[in-house]
Amino acid sequence: MSQTIFFILSALTIISALGVLFAKNPMYSVLSLIACFFTVAGHYIMLNAQFLAIVHLIVYAGAIMVLFLFVVMLLNLNAETEPHKTSKIKFAAVIAGGILFLTIIASLKAGIPGAYHLPVKSNIGLVEIIGQKLFTDYLLPFEVSSILFLSAMIGSVLLAKKEKR
């Protein structure tokens, strides 16, 4: 049962990720990236990471992709204005990506454990456990990330502001 779900989710993930690459219109790229994020959230639920699945949906599909959509609409990008590389460069890019994939697979073949047959805990993805980790072991990075957010907010407002001439 869960193998079937895994295969369906993986196929959807890969198809929508390829859709990001090969869509002519940037709008369709954004939409297929949103589909990809939804399927990745499905994978998180399969892996007992419920909190992360929800955060992933809210942050990526809810915030980041809306930002992308707004920028694509604001810049008025469409298939006609879309720059394209020559087919030689595209071919070279596909070959390079394939060789990278081959290298990773070859390095995985050396020493990968199969399924862990340990008594696996299934509650590690709940808010309670993650929150306890976040506010005890990882308190300093958590606070620093708030400063990062503040500086990113100020920086993006300053960068996107129109300069007076």
Partner: peptide, 20 residues
């Protein structure tokens, strides 16, 4: 899920996504 799916499949999937 963890008992029926070997971890290699997740490794393959994320390697493929990275290469894409």
């Amino acid at each position: 899920t963890i008992q029926t799916i070997p971890q290699n499949w997740y490794l393959l999937l994320s390697a493929f996504l990275f290469c894409i």
